[in-house]
Amino acid sequence: MIPQPFDYYAPATLREALAMIASGEHKILAGGMSLVPLMKLRLALPEHVVDLGRIPELNYIAESGGVLRIGAMSTHHDIESSAAVRAHCPLLAEAAGHIGDAQVRNMGTIGGSIAHADPSADYPAALLALETKIRIVSANSDRTIDAAEFFVDAFTTALEPGEIVLELQAPVEDQGEGYCYEKVPHPASGFAVVGVAVRVKKAGGKIAMARIGITGMGPRPFRDSMAEKMLESGTEIGQATQSIGQGEEANSDLYASGDYRRHLARVHAARALRTALTRAS
């Protein structure tokens, strides 16, 4: 449980950090809740580690113009407890509260988490349901993409070498929206065997808008637009969630088979939707 020797850099500014990582040879430490355990197991053997933890300009949460902006180095605890997140994107705060344990939430960051793209991470489900955009920068580029484009495969994102996540931009949820994050945690790791994030809007006793993001079930998180459309066109929840995950690959491990995960995604989507509806006004 001892890592190999490595060089450690702690830049103080974003500019400095981006210059350091431009070559793409560096491993980025953004909280270290995934990287450090892998290094201790000697599964990750980086020679150069650049710690973004001392760059104040990456740690902020602010709302402006209907968009909630979250700096990449905001910790899960920051997000879980932020008044702005709770007011404008309560779904994200709820998902953050389900991550790991208190120590992990105090150290781990949203930028680090999504860049790692663990297929069982909690955030992606919420980010997809919230239709979040992700701003990515490098020493000589600056682009903003949809969360749906960001998550490519297990541990694989749209980040190119030299790029980092700068900011997450979530449209502020409308007043009266209902939301819910339902999670089946693995009893050992606490990772999501399946996690379902939903948002709903009611109009005239019906579902006017539904968003469903699912994590843990397959190699990458996904939004189930078919189920969303069915719900929006009046299909009852039980029936609309029956097709969730159809056509998506499902993960299997010692604890849960792919079939079971798919089943859990359906059951918990229905439960999350019911809770969200009771929260919607």
């Binding site: 197991l41 693995h186 009893p187 050992a188 790791s189 491990d253 010692l254 604890y255």
Partner: peptide
Amino acid sequence: ALWEQAVYDDTGQLLTGELTDYAIPKAHF
């Protein structure tokens, strides 16, 4: 009763080789 199980595969690999897969009871369980 509910969570723990040491699993070896047929070649002798301990598949539950860490606390990430081997579930011991936690206070909140």
